[in-house]
Design a protein around this nucleic acid. Sequence first.
DNA 1: TTAATTGCAAACACTTTGCACGCTA
DNA 2: TAGCGTGCAAAGTGTTTGCAATTAA
Lengths: 143, 143
Amino acid sequence: MERNEDVSRRLKECGLKGTKHRKAILHFMDCSKIPVSADQVYLQLSAQGISMDLSTVYRTLETMREKGLLIKHSRLNDTRALYEYNRMEHKHYLVCLGCNKMLPVRHCPLEEYEKTLEKETDFMISGHKLAIFGYCAECKENI
Amino acid sequence: MERNEDVSRRLKECGLKGTKHRKAILHFMDCSKIPVSADQVYLQLSAQGISMDLSTVYRTLETMREKGLLIKHSRLNDTRALYEYNRMEHKHYLVCLGCNKMLPVRHCPLEEYEKTLEKETDFMISGHKLAIFGYCAECKENI
DNA sequence: TTAATTGCAAACACTTTGCACGCTA
DNA sequence: TAGCGTGCAAAGTGTTTGCAATTAA
């Protein structure tokens, strides 16, 4: 149960109690390769026999986001918000218009551009959100 | 009333009846320099003495979007959706984290990048959404 | 005339919140 | 045992919808 201890430690570092639910959620988030919704967390954990209220999932994800453990993607595709484990990497996403899946892309083509833009405008730029839309390998066959 | 006739004509071209509400909304959208929410349309027209139900505003904006008259920005900043008159230009926005205002930026730094990405992945790319966040001239003073 | 448009009220999806009880540190 | 965490039910927010009445073409 190395992983379990790792998760407990990270919760403690954030000043959060290591409850069963929190450990389960954080572990699940850590294992997810792509961003997931509160709903998905709830259903998947349910399926694993770990049952909790949906509001607890929402509350926990939000708390973890505040502590910097997770990153929130707010309704990119106008559906529900997605959360992912924060691995401290700046990246962007390919968002599938078919299944809403988000695939990370490492390279960021915007760093230079932001600096130029700040000089040209009155804005104080603090970040950006780039989502590239399209259809993933599976979905593009069913259009 | 040149403008009014222009608006009527554009409605007709889209197969939409030229009702008083529609003309008022389309004219208002045409005059707006930046994207606005259904709520804002509703309030501003109200203030001009043009009263209608909020659901009518939502329905009308959505209809006009379907016809291509407007562009919809779906809850970019996790608040309400914003609509703008479609001037057939590809552009991006500076989104103010203070007041949610969206300022257009003409240049798009992503055209080349998309092609590269399509080659590298299995995605069929259909577009992108780039929002650059920060604080506008007014808001950055009050942080 | 007659099909499109509207107001109204109710439903919707996702998310947040108040409160009493339960459990971790 | 003190206070954080949780389930439950209810509220909130932005948006959509069904239906009957109204209106433009």
